[in-house]
Write a protein that binds this DNA or RNA. Structure first.
Lengths: 226, 226
DNA sequence: GGATGTGAACGACTTCACAGCG
DNA sequence: CGCTGTGAAGTCGTTCACATCC
């Protein structure tokens, strides 16, 4: 009796919805393109774009097809066009005011990470529960108490939140962020977050990555990736 | 010129080689199992294991099948058995002496990250090129100059290296690590490393993760993941 | 010739569904 | 019964190969 969801209800004839893997590669293409463009390269081929990243030319073309028909047969792609198109698809052709909760070493590292700001990710506020840290200033940003979240988020209109708190605090803080209006969370804690499906979560689980590495080094097989 | 990397047509009849995706989930199962076990849960079902992680029970069983037939039909799995088996497959049933190059905030965050040591990843040495930092001690570890790499690695037998250096230094440092005997690199820089195929690389690209998030928040579709 | 865009083949991963054991 | 293990079916993503256009 558990069978009533017959029709696949939504969009089937969607011409282009980049998959997760594709989105990841688009990020890499974008960075490579920006570098090439700075170096004065104006036209790029799928082969050129892919080879430094270990991606086949066919894969590159399939990925770029999601952007529309930007390529010129026999010529290649115009770097500036690609850059603009990828930015558009990734949604980074705008500013993303972002808040950071949990002011530890990881937070400091992220704050200093050039490349976030370059992409429009602008940290607009910091939060911590430690009275010692509250009131301090880091990179020009004041550390607020957690209670100030609703007010500060209302003021800054931040839509993204970065979680660098201890495991135990993660779920609670995430819920507070969502309640205050955040629509996407970058989660550096090992806690699996339970949030409403309208909120997007990307988890960066460092233990998992290190264990991947241990597995790969132990096993005698292939190699590189993300 | 650029065409000699033929296909490695090696082992096909391998009965059980966990895929990359499976390995990632095994890490998650392991963490969950350890928690459940600490809470006194001795028997777990595939459904119980998967539900908190958003993984279907069928998927859990398929993943665990790589460990051999550990399950008891009608009963479930014995948590300690699973824990031991997963540790074995992941290769973390041993110690992994690890070195860290680039002593910035990210490095400090990783050093403090409990959960690495719990899994056998033991930092045994630090390196940096900054004369100010060389000679300092962090968490009981001395910061060595890059030149000391061969000697220190020979002494500590470290097999894994973590790269938290600036982009420009990444390729050079990675090569030095490999020359000194490291067989696996966890790369936090946006630089795509070119290393011999016998060296395993896992990249953690924070910009890509944030851009994934921006894409997901921009797009009106599904949700959570790793 | 050089390079794109794309259907078709291929392969990898996931879900289904069910036999079979405790 | 509950729950595992697993072939079969299905889905998703990548590679191939080629028509097409500059």
């Amino acid at each position: 009796m558990s069978k009533n969801d017959e029709a696949p209800p939504a969009d089937l004839l969607n011409p282009a919805k980049p998959s997760r893997a594709t989105v990841g590669r688009l990020s890499l293409y974008l960075r490579r393109l920006e570098l090439l463009h700075r170096e004065g390269v104006a036209k790029v081929s799928s082969r050129l774009l892919g080879e430094a990243l270990g991606v086949s030319d066919a894969q590159v073309r399939k990925d770029l097809a999601h952007l529309g028909a930007l390529g010129h047969p026999g010529i290649g792609y115009a770097a500036p066009d690609l850059i603009a198109a990828i930015r558009g698809v990734l949604g980074i052709d705008r500013d993303w005011p972002t808040v950071l909760v949990g002011v530890g070493h990881l937070a400091r590292a992220l704050l200093r990470y050039r490349g976030f700001a370059e992409r429009g990710f602008r940290f607009v506020a910091l939060f911590d529960s430690d009275p010692e840290k509250i009131g301090q200033t880091l990179d020009g940003l004041l550390v607020h108490p957690l209670e100030a979240m609703p007010a500060v988020l209302a003021e800054t209109h931040a839509e993204l939140g970065v979680l660098t708190v201890p495991l135990e605090a993660a779920q609670g803080v995430a819920e507070a962020l969502v309640a205050a209006g955040v629509r996407g969370v970058l989660n550096f804690t090992p806690q699996v977050l339970r949030l409403p499906p309208s909120v997007r979560v990307v988890a960066v689980d460092l233990t998992v990555q290190l264990e991947q590495l241990a597995f790969l080094v132990g096993e005698p097989t292939a190699s590189v990736d993300e």
